[in-house]
Design a protein around this nucleic acid. Structure first.
Lengths: 193, 193
DNA sequence: ATTCATTGCAAGTACTCACTTGCGTGGAGG
DNA sequence: CCTCCACGCAAGTGAGTACTTGCAATGAAT
């Protein structure tokens, strides 16, 4: 990948994140990349091709690799906090907005599967993690898949709401949110009397 | 509001939900509403005007009214399930997709505030509910606002993920999800030994 | 019977879009 | 010195966009 092509990809992905796929024009891309518009079409087949090329790069796919889940301590609090922080660090506001920017009928069919991979991996891993924790006697018997979905939903919900409305809706810092949530997930909120 | 205008609004909102604001054309609207394209501009100032008119109607704003929270029983399990079900029934896949369809730079500035109102109301209400429950001695001392955000995030996350990926990602039914989540929120997941 | 508002129809405007073409230029490698 | 390649530049294509206009037909109210 030559320098110019990479610049085009980076600029395009940033524009899709900020304005959406349909509203991103090739003129915008050329201007931001400081190149001539026709150079875009010398490097790529078309607008869609740029985005699909970008989607193939780790950098624009939240850098999710298997070793995200490597440092498991088999301690509920530590591990859950680590999972949530790992997810929130990677699937940040930029990535959330990019995912939404890709929701255009002209392109969504070809990107949806890739976007879904990330939540899929997390939910799948969480489920097996809970099963193992149950085997170790550290977790009560329950529907582990459903549990994984609940915890993932709350993690995803937080980063999405942050990305959409910033601090206007949610003014809780990531660190505090993770700590507070995990505490509740583990111990529950009902008063023990 | 005459019949034709209402038809135009309904068709437009449905198209924005399915294809996004930018990708929705006035030709599409005319075709779906079975009217001539110029009639649209006799009734409305322009495309943006149709959407903004639609946003003012309860029907296209998830029917959130204060009496959603009316039937509070002051029982953690019953109330949380009621809140979540009320939210999920109203903010369904259609509404989630509409909210995302409205995320276009040409219109988002004028709709973001309205969209944010709904989560705002829920989080606010949940927070005061938890404070009252604590006063009644049914809830441990904690950061109630942060708690409300966690529960709201998990509720929102579920409906959003359902709307985006349908059953391909999450195959848990709403009823089961709510029951399972509330159980965890209340009692925690750690094994009592 | 006349009036009047609503709508359809056909044509058209000005603009923007993705994408193309032909030619010139500058710089790196042989 | 020559070749080649990446790129800039200017101009243009055809299709699509939101939005407009003039005229005719319909039908309900007066």
């Amino acid at each position: 990948m030559d320098e110019t092509s990479q610049k085009i990809i980076d600029v395009t992905m940033a524009l899709v994140r900020d304005k959406g796929y349909v509203a991103t024009t090739t003129k915008d891309i050329a201007k931001d990349a400081q190149i001539n518009e026709c150079t875009i079409f010398r490097k790529f087949k078309g607008k869609k091709d740029i985005v699909l090329s970008g989607m193939k790069q780790q950098e624009w796919r939240a850098n999710i690799t298997p070793d995200v889940f490597k440092n498991v301590k088999w301690n509920l609090q530590e591990d859950l906090e680590m999972f949530m922080n790992n997810y929130l660090d990677r699937v940040n506001a930029d990535f959330v907005n990019l995912s939404i920017g890709l929701r255009a009928p002209q392109i969504y069919d070809e990107t949806a599967a890739l976007i879904m991979k990330i939540p899929e991996i997390f939910i799948q891993y969480l489920t097996t993690y809970f099963e193992k924790m149950h085997d170790k006697g550290k977790l009560a018997e329950m529907d582990f898949h459903s549990l994984a979905i609940t915890i993932f939903s709350s993690t995803f919900g937080y980063t999405f709401l942050k990305a959409s409305f910033e601090d206007k809706l949610i003014d809780v810092k990531q660190k505090d949110y993770v700590e507070q949530s995990v505490k509740m997930f583990i111990n529950g909120i009902q008063k023990n009397s």
